[in-house]
Design a binder for these strands. Structure first.
Lengths: 345, 345
DNA sequence: GCTGTTCACGTGAACGTTAATGAGAGAGGA
DNA sequence: TCCTCTCTCATTAACGTTCACGTGAACAGC
């Protein structure tokens, strides 16, 4: 096999009559080397095509310059944006990203944590699964900093960066509910995660502020197929099926809030097929501001999530904690902006 | 600091009065160990919470059980689906995924390759950037197998897995062009990549088959903002701006093909604002079958890309090549399916 | 000329694992 | 009794780095 032998520190050293250690120091830019030999070394290293072996390095140094990123589903546009931001920030700081996908399964989550322990990553950014057990504690016990993304599992003493969904929904609902709006429905995902809980809490807060009785309000759970290993994220079909069953000409909400813009697509169709119109008969408020939201008919009022800022903030926080393990726990909830379009009148 | 010392092979060995080597063999399931001690060892290892150090392992074994995945932009839904599929298959085979994002920049691509060399990954799956230099050769020279994804740079002797965009577009255009369709435009991305070239080739092939002169056909390039570090993928706005400038009541195509479904969104608006309708005045054919395509008005005829199959096939191919480095080069182009909806009549 | 300081570099050990080789014990056969 | 064979485990040496030292030379000051 032509598997060309890898060029090592010794190879460079031998060729120059130096020790491996000197070459190491020269390339690391430490100050125990004369400028002359440093130049010689880097020239020879480049000539031979020397590439440092990161495993050897992290074996002795204990640091890996790798960050673990645990995501439930990369096809979800919010998480995709998060991945982009996290990778970009890590790259800028000299870190590489090990990507682990859990598909919202506890088993995969446990395997992911195991992998991260084997690798001895310097830190972890992770979205917890629906029924996250205490797997994450293993990382903390091993001295690996963890920043929770998007979904918060309180009481674990872990840093958190996410979106203030509760306030965003509360404000958006109040703002979208004009005069005459009494019946409000929320089309939610059927997951036991903090994000869903936050949206429902925001929804209730809005009801209270508007003085609308709980009986006028409905929280509907759309069966989710996320865990089935499908790469597609939320499916408009599922929301459509549910909405089509419940919405009729005589029984419909004045304002319908959906847990994501895909659900809104399904709702649009269900509403249309009843002969009702958005926003005259039913106002619709989405969540996520996906790229299509501005372009459907009518353009969808929705909540823009600062995925990029969240990713950036999470990496910043993680790097700070890596540098300073004993700093107090931080919990950041970024505000989300309401983008008003025609679907709410 | 409570940075608990990591449990090592020796710790387990010492506690049982064995050597580290025996513990290693026992846990590796090799046959030089009695069943009795194997049971003892695995019990003690679990009790102490032993986690193998992957760096030490790969330092001596030369294998890392890590695959590099080089992607231009995770927010592109096609690549997001690819990431999901690749990660899933790798996970099933016991490999972890190191994710590198290039943002279509040659500089980032080179840094990515450098990272992969440092890590000594067992294989690489990668989407080449627009003007990919010979950076990928460095991996081959180091004996690291590479499978190109989606975009093919011919002549490098690298395996390739992608979509047969040319045939897909050619067939779809012919099928979408009913009687009376003479003027056909293609709204393309402004990138020098093989995917764009393939679509244009398919477009031309369709024109020839339909007997339409090149003068009746137009290839329009939408300025792309992908490289600007923005996490958003193709922007409908850019397509809208271009289309709105060119399309008027008196000067419009009979059939408009867009390089992706987002462009179709922009085109829809431009067409609508001229007082024209889809598909009566202008038929629209999209590309990608994004989740919203079935739900916009009118539902968009588009081409469904087998991202999942592509990812699976690519990983299979890579694993085969890892096992058998000297097998002949393979180039796979998966067929894409036309999803006919109302936008083409 | 002797000691002390600074600079440039080498030496040896360590990181945690695996592979090659060796060694002791017990069993079985002559 | 001795030899060989097999089974189980230990010993030793790597893998490529980095870190804590040690060392020698040059130079200054007394």
């Amino acid at each position: 096999m032509a598997r060309s032998q890898r060029v090592t520190l010794r190879d460079v050293a031998d060729r120059l009559g130096l020790s491996a250690n000197t070459v190491s120091r020269a390339l690391a830019g430490k100050d125990q080397v004369s400028e002359a030999t440093r130049a010689l070394v880097s020239a020879e290293a480049k000539r031979l095509g020397y590439v440092p072996n990161s495993h050897a390095r992290s074996l002795v140094s204990g640091r890996t310059m790798v960050v673990g990123l645990v995501i439930t589903n990369p096809s979800n546009p919010f998480y995709a944006a998060l991945i982009s931001a996290v990778e970009r920030e890590c790259r800028a700081a000299g870190y590489s990203v090990l990507l682990l996908v859990t598909e919202d399964s506890a088993e995969n989550e446990e395997r992911a944590v195991q992998q991260l322990l084997r690798f001895g990553v310097d830190g972890v950014l992770g979205v917890a699964t629906e029924l996250s057990s205490d797997v994450w504690d293993g990382l903390s016990e091993a001295g690996i900093p963890v920043v929770q993304l998007s979904r918060d599992i309180p009481g674990r003493g872990l840093d958190f960066v996410g979106i203030d969904a509760e306030s965003a929904i509360a404000d958006a609902v109040v703002r979208s509910a004009g005069p005459g709006v009494r019946r409000i429905w929320l089309l939610e995902e059927d997951l036991r995660i903090s994000t869903v809980a936050a949206r429902i809490a925001g929804f209730r807060r809005a009801l209270d502020r508007l003085g609308i009785a709980r009986e006028q309000a409905l929280v509907l759970k759309v069966p989710t197929h996320r865990t089935s290993g499908a790469t597609q994220p939320w499916r408009p079909d599922d929301a459509y099926a549910l909405a089509a069953n419940l919405i009729t000409r005589d029984n419909h909400p004045d304002l319908l809030i959906t847990a994501n813009d895909y659900f809104a697509l399904g709702a649009y169709r269900a509403i249309r097929e009843c002969g009702l119109t958005v926003p005259d008969d039913v106002r619709v408020l989405g969540y996520g501001d996906h790229p299509f939201a501005a372009y459907i008919q009518p353009p969808l009022t929705t909540i823009r999530l600062p995925a990029d800022e969240a990713g950036t903030a999470a990496v910043d926080l993680l790097l700070r904690r890596i540098a300073e393990p004993d700093r107090p726990r931080t919990s950041t909830r970024l505000p989300a902006e309401l983008i008003e379009r025609r679907s709410t009148g």
